[in-house]
Design a protein around this nucleic acid. Sequence first.
RNA 1: CGGGGUGUAGCGCAGCCCGGUUAGCGCGCUUCGUUCGGGACGAAGAGGUCGGGAGUUCGAAUCUCCCCACCCCGACCA
Length: 561
Amino acid sequence: MKLSKYFVPTLKEVPNDAVVASHVLMLRTGMVRMLSAGIYSFLPLGYRVIKKVSEIIREEMDAIGGQEFHLPGLSPREIWEETGRVEAFGDILFQIKNRDYVLAPTHEEIMTYHARNVMKSYKDMPQIWYQIQTKFRNEPRPRSGVIRGRQFLMKDAYSFDTSYENLDQSYGLHDKAYRKIFDRCGIKYFVVGASSGAMGGTGSEEFMVQSDAGEDTVGYCENCGYAANIEVAASRIDVKKRDEVSSDVKEIYTPNIKSIDELCGFLNIDETQTAKSRVVINDGKPVLVLMLGNEEVNETKLESILSGNVRPAHPEELVEISGAEAGSIGPIGFKHRIVADLRLKDANNLFSGANKTDYHFGGIDLLRDVPSIEYYDLRSVQSGEGCTRCGSNLAVFSAIELGHIFKLGTKYSEAMGANFLDENGEAHPIIMGSYGIGVDRVVACFIEQNHDDKGIVWNKTLAPFDVHLIALNMKKEDVVKNAESIYSKLIEEGLEVLYDDREAQAGFKFNDADLLGMPLQIVVGEKKLKENKVELKVRKTNERFDVDVNNIFEKVKELLM
RNA sequence: CGGGGUGUAGCGCAGCCCGGUUAGCGCGCUUCGUUCGGGACGAAGAGGUCGGGAGUUCGAAUCUCCCCACCCCGACCA
């Protein structure tokens, strides 16, 4: 491809609206342009990369017996009513104004629609159906460029099986295929285990990439590979040790002391001697949540323990429930359910609120004074805490979800009446799995992981072109002649070549080449042509080789391997 | 949806507080000439509903009100 004719609008300056590296670089390299918030057009260069990722996905999906579909983006709303997901998605679901259609945010319903009444026999299964399609979600807040958009490209696959054992197999095939896909793309990822979530089902894994642009927080153990969403992650952490002697409960006057920090300062104690109280309303009933010192409650853990609806109590409610204002609430004398974090298990000599405004108790012995207390893991793990599996230090960081594999079970087949007959002629709902990969996220994540201050550093697998050929001075006949012949020769050999044949300064071309980041650059200039040589530069390592014009292809092949 | 911010040429910005010529600057773009291995130089040009609407005023990019778009933080997130 000749750059003089190719639509690659590169940007020298950093666009104002972009913050994360991949977003900045995708704009600067002319891979994408924004049309509207969270809606991006892929330009020719960017689309080449999308196609490369898609092709890898396609190959690996086909290798596990997947069959590619191309489903519509539009679908009648009533099909989503069948599974109750119009309500479940709520405002996320785009609805068409002048006809009762929605823009599909995912395709479980549509695939199930095609399966029902067609896959009627156990003999028809297993099946793996997939597609690479645009999804539409009315995200309240699109961000980070292509990483969270209102419209994005997703590979979604669905498996149909007759038993949970067979589902496990289909699931396992996807797990392997996904690892191959991300390995081939050259992405550093890790796998986070089940957090079954609102989708229902029996198991799931998320394929994650560490990135500050990510929206999930995970705990990860480099040593053993343990990885879990912060919402469920556990760690080895000491419980507060029980003192040998429990002192008596004593009431302390603590005027205007509201926070744990203030309490510690006022009494000159350490925060590990205190228990913080939070009151929530769980399905209309108050619950006191006790944490050691200043530790924050992990909302997800709390909600899964309490089940049902959980919300913080209003300030007026607090007085009514506990008799005290926020800051003076504690376990002793609290007349409702009390749950405490495990670190407080059987602790004594604690300071906490006295349920009387401006008073705290000291010498609290939870074992002695609060017999009805229940203990759970309620805190979020933090970096540096011990891995529960191997004891090494856990790292906590944010991450981007690249893929998700999910054992759906029969949620959709039951709701939509997709049944099959087994060997005995009995009807059962089809057992399904669903498996997604964010294709544009793969591209963005690769760039997040592979760039420097000059631009993108592609590998051969995903690079839009293998070679970036630069003719330094288009006014010199010798340079043009040699560049043209190298260009044809490499194309003949099956390489993808981007040829910078523009009338421009050398520095301009070098910088564009580094920005666009093809793995290998070939520089054709007067200076080295005098010795019948051209320069090859490896983008990643910045290594340079002077190569005889007649040996270019061999050296290119060697360097690209 | 809550908090903060921005909107002026393709891109990056100044001007606005304190209303008053023809709305500027850098990059990019067009033409000509010079230059040609790390974002060149000279000369001449083109390019603007100052986000939109209403208002105040003799006069609005500038003041007031409403709306819209976009960004950041939070909430939300199959």
